[in-house]
Design a protein around this nucleic acid. Structure first.
Length: 257
DNA sequence: ATGTCAATATACTATTGA
């Protein structure tokens, strides 16, 4: 089965792109982030064969999961902070037909460094790690996908000097991402391509960043230890990023046996 | 330091977040 993740940067502005991607690749499941609105066009996706679950928010954030297989929502709140109202998390079970836990995250950006936003990011990651400790030993295998807003290593950006003052490349979030891997979760892309540089999922809109391939790899799939042996392929599809009026992110696709 | 895009209110332009 194929699962894709894509930060669309406004579902309203990117609807034609989303439908074109679904038609071109027909993934079984698509995780989307940054819907940027309360409206979600579930009927338009149903018309092309996808059920959906979504949690929206006015102006910011918002995540959805589209699925051609039966899907049920478990929760749209990440445990650990009842005051947190951001729409950044969707936990679902998909019948493949064996059960698979599919988690969609839009991890906080955290810029600028040292502000409340940065500490919110770190706390959000700590809360996610607590959840992952529970999932690690659960009989249902787990895949976590989405916009992690973390550049894991130097190889994951065009030039480290360009990112050293950015929250996405700070030691604290990178340490937490490494802790997730140390728990036994597997970074699908990097495991299959340990030495591939210049493989990015996001490029700034300005300074012709995409044309010059000055980007970063911040959209990821993490597979639980039980699921990792089923990893067979992982691909960054740059096609949508090359189209007119694109999102600043491009889709990442993973294939599971 | 620069630059682009999308949403929204301050509303045919400015602010915020990314």
């Amino acid at each position: 089965m194929v699962i894709a993740t894509w930060n669309v940067n406004s579902i309203r502005a990117r609807m034609t792109h989303a439908l074109a991607f679904l038609e071109a690749r027909r993934p079984d499941v698509l995780l989307m982030q940054e819907l940027k609105g309360l409206e979600f066009p579930a009927e338009d996706f149903r018309a092309v064969g996808y059920e959906s679950v979504a949690i929206g928010q006015k102006s910011y954030n918002g995540v959805a999961i589209l699925s051609r297989l039966p899907i049920e929502m478990v929760t749209n709140r990440l445990a650990g902070d009842d005051e947190d109202t951001h729409a950044r998390y969707l936990e679902t079970i998909i019948d493949t037909p064996t059960k698979l836990r599919v988690v969609n995250i839009y991890l906080p950006n955290g810029n600028p460094i040292g502000t409340e936003k940065f500490f919110y990011k770190l706390q959000w990651m700590d809360r996610l790690i607590q959840q992952m400790l529970v999932w690690k030993n659960d009989p249902i295998p787990t895949i976590i996908g989405g916009d992690f807003n973390v550049i894991p290593e130097e190889i994951d950006c065009d030039k480290p000097a360009n990112w050293v003052r950015d929250a996405l490349f700070q030691p604290e979030p990178r340490e937490r991402y490494r802790a997730m891997k140390a728990m036994g979760f597997v970074d699908a892309f990097r495991t299959l391509y340990p030495d591939t540089a210049d493989a990015f999922t996001y490029w700034d809109y300005f300074r012709q960043a995409f044309e010059r391939n000055r980007g970063i790899r911040i959209d990821h799939f993490l597979l639980s230890p039980a699921l990792a042996p089923r990893l067979t392929a992982c691909e960054i599809d740059k096609t949508p990023r090359a189209q007119e009026k694109p999102s600043d992110h491009t889709p990442l696709l993973v294939t599971l046996a």
